[in-house]
Nucleic acid binder design. Structure first.
Lengths: 234, 234
DNA sequence: CGAAATCTGTAAGCCCCCTTACGAACGGAT
DNA sequence: ATCCGTTCGTAAGGGGGCTTACAGATTTCG
């Protein structure tokens, strides 16, 4: 992949422009943020932080993709989210988290901007709207995790797969001749981690969906052909 | 049960004194809170709010017990927490939640104080420490849910039961001749809901633990005799 | 005190999905 | 073109826990 050559300053500028909190910060505050943040580049497959690392920074994605996941001791994995350009992660550091509980790994070559939580929290001293925005963000994360929990407890693999495919279509969908392509290379194993299952079971379930005409697939690519019937499976 | 006869004013006073946020609020702010809140009494088994109800209040428990739980469409249930006197719940209303996602039911006769979220959020305008405290609270909730998720995905029923018993001992434990009694009447069914399992499976697992001498039980009562061995099961 | 409701013990059957296993197809590298 | 690592298809076997079923025990309430 050809990376666009950009200076650190340009990246920081971009990250602040596209920051989640841009609408509750004054130009002065944005400028201060820009000064204290820094940009870092990772190659595909590197780890940004491990579970147990000190939790005192947050990240905004300039480009690339980052996977947030749980690991259990035996190496099994549950992927919580795959973040794309413009998104924010690591924000649990703002909520008093001491050590990381998840792992953050790059799926592609990635550049992101790092903000130290202290620099960010300092801004909340004089900006109550910012603090409220943070609580909203945490609330959204809470809802996401709650949904995962609900699915794992009450639904089977098929329903979880259907729901996850729908979310992927919503977030990364790209129109195609005979349906919507998920604009994100995903192996069956990655998909399995997203739904809390195994590669084999997921392959089987996907094959079944293809046989029923709900989707078409090639290695790493999934094209959803019938969103409605997929919704019925949830 | 004999309820202590107390005036609404006395209850509100108590709730504010024992409020989670008491240390970040000025006496004036506490006084303002006390003015805007009101106390309500429920009998055992009543519902405080249903999933789908508007989410615009938070609650502090004066006395009694309240169960927070998920329901799925077929009536299965996952209990997230059992709240006791002095504890706060419903705080997701502060994070922009529009409608309740959980159900809140009383397990005993209960009195609680209700605070409207607007009254509370107004205080954050001039009190950044309060806003930060809210984010910490949400962070704690997030961790709790994450732990549940992790357990459901990676652990079996036995490990989940052991972990939940340990939490109950920690929160409600009362010393006893031959161990620690969980100071909370819990049927096997309630316990099953706490660990995301069924009554039968839970009874079986409990019986096994009793056979191994880790605990003793009577109807509704559990006395843990060997905390250490219980920890090894997680 | 007696009847009804609730709670607990236990077991058989079954189902979903994980585990294990292996071969084939595909893609990238040299 | 060939080799090798990765991804995918598929199937048999097994296990954990849910479902169903029922009887006995305990509490509650009239």
């Amino acid at each position: 992949m050809k990376l666009p050559l950009q200076s650190d300053a340009a990246r920081r500028f971009w990250c602040v422009e596209n920051f989640n909190f841009v609408d509750v910060l004054t130009p002065q505050e944005l400028e201060e943020l820009r000064r204290t943040m820094r940009s870092v580049a990772y190659r595909a497959g590197e780890t940004i932080y491990f579970p147990g690392d000190p939790s005192d920074t947050l990240y905004t994605l300039h480009h690339g993709r980052v996977r947030l996941a749980y690991l259990d001791e035996s190496g099994r994995r549950l992927t919580l989210a795959i973040m794309s350009a413009g998104e924010l992660f690591g924000e649990t550091a703002l909520a008093g988290e001491e050590r990381r509980r998840w792992i953050a790994e790059t799926l592609e070559d990635t550049v992101l901007c790092i903000i130290h939580k202290d620099d960010f929290l300092r801004l909340t001293q004089n900006n109550p709207r910012l603090a409220l925005k943070i609580t909203k963000l945490l609330g959204e994360r809470l809802v996401e995790i709650e949904n995962k929990l609900e699915d794992l407890l009450f639904k089977g693999v098929n329903a979880r797969l259907a729901r996850t495919l729908l979310q992927l279509v919503q977030k990364h969908g790209e129109s195609e001749a005979d349906g919507v392509r998920i604009g994100l290379k995903l192996t069956h194993e990655e998909l399995a981690h997203l739904i809390g299952s195994t590669r084999e079971t997921t392959s089987l379930a996907l094959g079944e969906l293809e046989r029923q005409g709900l989707l078409r697939k090639q290695r790493g690519i999934i094209i959803v052909r019938d969103v409605e019937r997929l919704k019925q499976l949830t």
